[in-house]
């Protein structure tokens, strides 16, 4: 394909991405340098880097940041372990049963996250099923407080992304080399040894892929936290995204919120850049 044909084909996509992603990002940096509320939306007032410094000195921002890090640290490893183990179990059944299990397992993933959270919340209402089980088991009432709301957010995070890792690992298991497994069987390897020495190395690149994407998605988690953190009105269960949202929409400090969004972009870039460099090398080698 010639260079100019290539640009003809990609032009609509490039134009829309430039206009609506590259330029807004630059605008966010610029808006972050202004004092901007809903009242002076057409005439922002330039304040330089004050918003950025403000954010870095904001204790609540760091609270939200810490919770986001905690969220990633618990959710991402759980996703990988549960997804992998359940994929191994699912691999053991075949035919009709496999199809049924897979359909059921996919449910948390296809449900609208907001709706999934509300469904989850219904279980923990005063009249909810889990509240009742909890009361029967421990004989104390389940209460919403900072800890329990945070636990709930994390639990939901695991519940609704596990199907994704499960399906990815499951697809990976289907491409295992049968010869290798048979050779191992002849050598008398046990099931656990095969998993340890054949399956786990086989899914290594998949794990890297899942790790990267689930870290990024966990970093910008919003929907579930937005619904569940309303249960905790002191705003202690905020993640960076919900705190930015509150600053922009509830507190109406748009300039500061833009500065915050820009700083979160800088934060994720630290994780992202080594990966981008690696995929760049891969793509260059592949062509």
């Amino acid at each position: 394909m010639k260079r100019h044909t290539f640009f003809q084909f990609t032009a609509p996509s490039i134009i829309i991405m430039t206009l609506l992603m590259v330029i807004p990002l630059i605008m966010a940096i610029w808006l972050g340098m202004h004092f901007l509320t809903f009242n002076n939306i057409t005439e922002p007032q330039f304040v330089g880097l004050r918003n950025y410094i403000d954010v870095l000195h904001d204790a609540r921002f760091w609270q939200a940041f810490n919770f986001t890090v905690l969220y990633i640290a618990i959710v991402v490893p759980s996703l990988i372990v549960i997804g992998f183990v359940m994929a191994l179990f699912l691999d053991q059944v075949s035919g009709f049963a496999r199809g049924i299990y897979l359909s059921i397992f996919l449910l948390p993933f296809i449900i609208v996250p907001i709706v999934g959270t509300i469904m989850f919340k219904q279980l923990f209402e005063a009249s909810g099923l889990i509240t009742w089980i909890y009361q029967t088991l421990f004989d104390t009432r389940f209460r919403y407080n900072e800890q329990s709301v945070k636990a709930l957010i994390i639990f939901f995070g695991i519940w609704y992304v596990t199907p994704f890792t499960l399906v990815v690992y499951f697809a990976g298991l289907q491409t295992l080399s049968q010869d290798l497994l048979e050779a191992a069987s002849i050598d008398g390897a046990s099931r656990l040894q095969k998993i340890r020495h054949i399956v786990i190395p086989h899914v290594r690149s998949l794990t890297l892929f899942i790790l990267l994407f689930s870290i990024m998605d966990a970093y910008r988690v919003f929907d579930s936290v937005f619904v569940l953190s309303e249960l905790n009105p002191i705003y202690k269960a905020n993640t960076i995204m919900t705190y930015t949202f509150q600053t922009a929409i509830s507190v109406q400090r748009l300039g500061k919120a833009n500065a915050m969004a820009v700083l979160t972009v800088v934060g994720i870039m630290i994780v992202l850049v080594p990966f981008l460099i690696q995929s760049y090398k891969e793509q260059i080698a592949e062509r």
Binding site: T10, L20, L25, M241, A257, V262, S279, Q283, R287
Partner: peptide, 26 residues
Amino acid sequence: ASVVILIAALAFRALPRLAFILPYFW
């Protein structure tokens, strides 16, 4: 050019949405 666009797209896929949405709102 093809590789550059792909990598840029990958980077933008990973960024937190709010960094675009707040300017859209403005």
